[in-house]
Design a binder for these strands. Structure first.
Lengths: 219, 219
DNA sequence: TCCTCTAAGTACCGTACGGTACGGTTCCCA
DNA sequence: TGGGAACCGTACCGTACGGTACTTAGAGGA
């Protein structure tokens, strides 16, 4: 299911992984400008020649950094347990918090900034990598959960895709762009996650007992 | 509803405005790398010395470009007319379409990419400019509309801020970031806007006649 | 007519980057 | 023990950029 990209998605040797980790550190610390081949060679105690042998050129290095980071972050597969309303609620809440945490991670932000900065130069190659390889996993996790919720009779919607986009928007709103622009993340992701899940269930959840699902305005 | 031009933009002389317009064109066309002082001087038929006299340095030029662009795009003030449910619905719909149109504009995307790319270098100065001066206007317009809706008894919520963030998330979802990463915009903003407004009214609108507000799932 | 101010055009400088080449060192394996 | 591959450190090259200085051309004003 994976390794469908044009990128070789090759494993990296321990030495290469250490260099890539250092590259990510430099990128997080100082952004695009701080990630120079000479600087990386110095910081990682390797030679520029090795960098070019391993990654081809600077763009190859950037692509390798994305692959490397995403090979480290893997979402755990949810086993298909029987869903109840409470379980669905909990899983949605965990998903929302996870999503916010991932998006506000400094490495994630740095890589997104990098890809956005390069998007007008390389035909969005990095951007596509980021969306395809990085987002697809978390998307799949949410879509599976949503589908499961529908099959269990707990959610209703026409298009799972549209419902997921709704959930995503409710969770993230403009936070991602604001953080990319340099704003500091929220203090409590938990409240934001809770609000988003409440709203999502109000929109797409089947009516529970009484007015439990018609909240969002009162307590 | 946007009005372009018409504002004399007292900040910049006509010559400077022409140069800034050319700078924006270069930025939209080729991104950060394409906006060099020599390139701008050549494209705009002005001297580099003039650029440095007018804008100080390259960062000053970038800041001036943001100011210039935002002096051109002004949102019209909504007069405080008496709101009905249909009027509120229409105004929300227009706002949603305007927001999507603004965010997917090539100049807006280019400036956001620029600010994001610089965010790790200049302490988010450009990002703050973009959020403060650019977004505040459209935020105010939406907040005014939402407040008006509450005062007319058509909307209910605890925090107007939170309600607006919900509206924003429903409208934009992850579209903005995806477009920043290089993805092509949606084909029809209208459907997206309509869905978002429906959902927002389901969450925060007072109950209307029958199942009119409980759509989004069945037919 | 002359003077001054503005700005275009160009030449220039220092720097920093991407990419290459080369010598020296370590380590593996025959 | 010898040879070769990998790799570090550094020196090097061409280029391109930000920023400055200088010369020239027009525009208005006294």
């Amino acid at each position: 299911m994976l390794s469908t990209g044009a990128a070789p998605s090759a494993e990296f040797s321990p030495r290469q992984s250490a260099v890539l980790a250092e590259a990510l550190r430099l990128l997080v610390e100082g952004g695009d400008k701080a990630l120079t081949t000479a600087g990386l060679a110095r910081a990682a105690s390797c030679s520029k020649e090795s960098l070019y042998k391993w990654f081809g050129d600077r763009d190859g290095l950037l692509a390798a950094m994305i692959s490397f980071q995403q090979s480290k972050v893997r979402t755990v597969e949810r086993s298909g347990e029987r869903l109840t309303a409470d379980l669905l609620h909990d899983h949605l809440d965990v998903f929302a918090r996870d999503l916010l945490e991932v998006l506000s991670g400094d490495v994630s932000l740095a890589l997104n900034r990098l890809a956005i900065g390069q998007s007008s130069r390389d035909g969005s190659k990095l951007g596509r990598m980021l969306v395809e390889h990085g987002r697809r996993q978390i998307d799949r996790r949410a879509m599976a959960l949503i589908d499961q919720g529908k099959r269990a009779g707990l959610l209703r919607f026409d298009s799972a895709e549209a419902a997921y986009h709704t959930l995503y928007g409710l969770i993230v709103s403009d936070l991602h762009v604001r953080m990319l622009l340099g704003e500091t993340p929220l203090k409590d992701n938990k409240a934001q996650a809770r609000r988003a899940v409440e709203a999502f269930l109000t929109l797409h959840g089947v009516q529970r007992d009484s007015g439990d699902a018609a909240v969002s305005s009162g307590k």
